[in-house]
Design a protein around this nucleic acid. Structure first.
Lengths: 342, 342
DNA sequence: TTGAAAGCGCTAACAA
DNA sequence: TTGTTAGCGCTTTCAA
């Protein structure tokens, strides 16, 4: 069933059918009605490939989303969607699969749907990036960690300062009287601009500023064999820390998922939270407030970040604005999982 | 940058470029190398729209996924993907947005990508369904609840029997000596084949078979104002049950998320779990084993269900097999959140 | 092994 | 207000 069939059925030209479908005012009401009725009756659906191929340009913003299985992104998609809506853009969501490279998908989708611009949510990218440079449309990186040093980025970014926020979280632990603070850290060998590395750096700086000597025995890196930043990994990593007989009164977990698993491990070891061990998470995921004890954590302002991403992209598209890097402050949400030491 | 440009650059015809790109053996090695080099150098990416438009058929299975924000589906996508891979299909993932109807998206995507078949994961559908009937390719419903009575379905389905599994879960509670069992139920007014209704029915039957009279005072329906089956809703619903002064020693929550929120509400009310109140969840989500106490829950065999869905679709595509409805058994995973009453 | 050309289904420019 | 037509970028004949 193509536009041709509908035209034949209605006894009109295909141009008229096209106009009727797209609500072009230059079709008589009677004709349009007839055509739409036939469309409905025969379940005609336009072929998007043909449409995209023909159209010189769309008015669509694409969202390239790496991490469909990552709960951190839960609920963000609809924020992007609504924001695009508000600014008058269509919205196209594309979930990047694990084995696909963001850059390649970006190129493909851009051509296929004639995107006006692109938001890249999550995933790993490196710069300079020749592929992305040749995209031809502006794009913004949201919660994508990239090296910040050296040359200016060719795109806008929206993120938080992981080092600073970790510093703040661990400082809070220090201020609550903790001196033996362990960290459930990212994988060893993570790149120097990965969040794990940044969060560990913040941890070290906080210790230093509070006159606490860094003790390698209190650092436990997450397992290479388990999914990164997952609950099982948090559980396993804490088990190892405990098994080593490390002596600590508080833990900084580099993600809420890690903290969740760690709490379980702590309890299995007979340590109460927060009475015997305080814990602090990172990300501010939705479930942390329903945990018992509710988890003190670094809340990333995901809504604002999503909104700002669309805004920046719109600036670039409509006003040709130059790239900017926006860094948001996270909020240390103080809840029940940290105890003040006497 | 189109195939034409590459052809011009390399001094060959566009047909040759097409063949080179698609690894057609009828291109001399030298020519292919030259072309691929130019492709790389100029960042040429074929336009999928043009490709899809031209190709008579693809070898692609599409996965229409409703519920990108639903943690229940976490990790399922890659199972579908691998299964398709194994059977020699390409895989196309499409996340259906809240405001889109599955049927419409199905029609569109099918035409656009010339799908061989479709798997519909989650979402709500009703039958008979004229739109889906005119799809023209086989499709299978995975964890989609549809009315089962009356005419045969035009497609295969893979699901579990919510009534039976709920019956089993609540029976277990009864067998542990509980007589006052509350339920955190689906929304009032849910359709008669919705999971909420089914799970409530299983609850009632279990009570009945164990000689316990059904007490409406022990049923608390989830809030209409909060997201369905969410943690806040579980929390809120339990709060209301508690506020009513209901008298119970165990609760059946119709989802793990509800159970999670409910545990928090219970504790805030000073009731220990499971000592003062047992609780049982439903779904078998990944985090339930890391909760404290770990949650006894009805584990849906999501991997098997995903695998079977692809298998059934393959049967329909390759062997023209008639639709079948496969119902899996769930597993009641007994953990720490239920206590035996003396 | 290659190039030329038809045509996938649609939109938009043009003509009527 | 309508019909006709060119052509979007590609794959795939067909002919060389």
């Amino acid at each position: 069933m193509t536009i041709k069939d509908i035209a034949r059925i209605c006894g009109v030209g295909i141009g008229t059918v096209s106009r009727a479908i797209n609500n072009d005012p230059r079709v008589s009401e009677k004709t349009q009605e007839k055509i739409l009725r036939a469309v409905k009756e025969h379940h005609y659906v336009p072929n998007n490939s043909a449409r995209n191929l023909k159209m010189a340009e769309s008015n669509t913003i694409g969202l390239l989303f790496s991490g469909i299985d990552n709960p951190f992104f839960q609920g963000m998609i609809s924020i992007f969607e609504n924001a695009c809506d508000e600014l008058g853009y269509s919205f196209f969501l594309y979930a990047v699969r694990e084995n696909d490279r963001v850059e390649n998908v970006a190129m493909e989708v851009c051509k296929e749907r004639r995107l006006k611009g692109l938001i890249i949510l999550g995933g790993q990218l490196s710069f300079p990036n020749r592929r992305l440079d040749s995209l031809g449309v502006p794009y913004v990186l949201c919660t994508v960690t990239v090296p910040r040093d050296g040359d200016a980025l060719p795109c806008s970014t929206v993120s938080i300062d992981d080092e600073k926020e970790s510093f703040r979280a661990v400082s809070y632990l220090c201020e609550q009287g903790h001196r033996r603070i362990a960290i459930l850290a990212g994988r060893t060998g993570e790149s120097s601009y990965g969040v794990g590395t940044l969060r560990l750096a913040g941890y070290r700086r906080a210790l230093e500023e509070h006159g606490i000597e860094f003790d390698p025995a209190l650092v436990e890196y997450m397992s290479e064999d388990l999914p990164e930043y997952s609950m099982p990994n948090g559980y396993d990593t804490m088990k190892r820390l405990l098994a080593r007989g490390a002596d600590f009164t508080a833990v900084f977990a580099v993600s809420d998922t890690m903290a969740f698993g760690a709490v379980r491990a702590l309890r299995e070891a007979g340590r109460r939270v927060p009475e015997d061990c305080s814990i602090i998470g990172y990300d501010g995921q939705y479930y942390t407030e329903f945990m018992t004890p509710s988890l003190t954590t670094v809340v990333q302002p995901v809504s604002e970040m999503a909104l700002k991403s669309v805004e920046l992209l719109d600036d670039a598209i409509r006003r040709n604005a130059p790239p900017v890097c926006v860094t948001y402050d996270a909020e240390l949400r103080i809840r029940e999982s940290v105890m003040r030491l006497p």
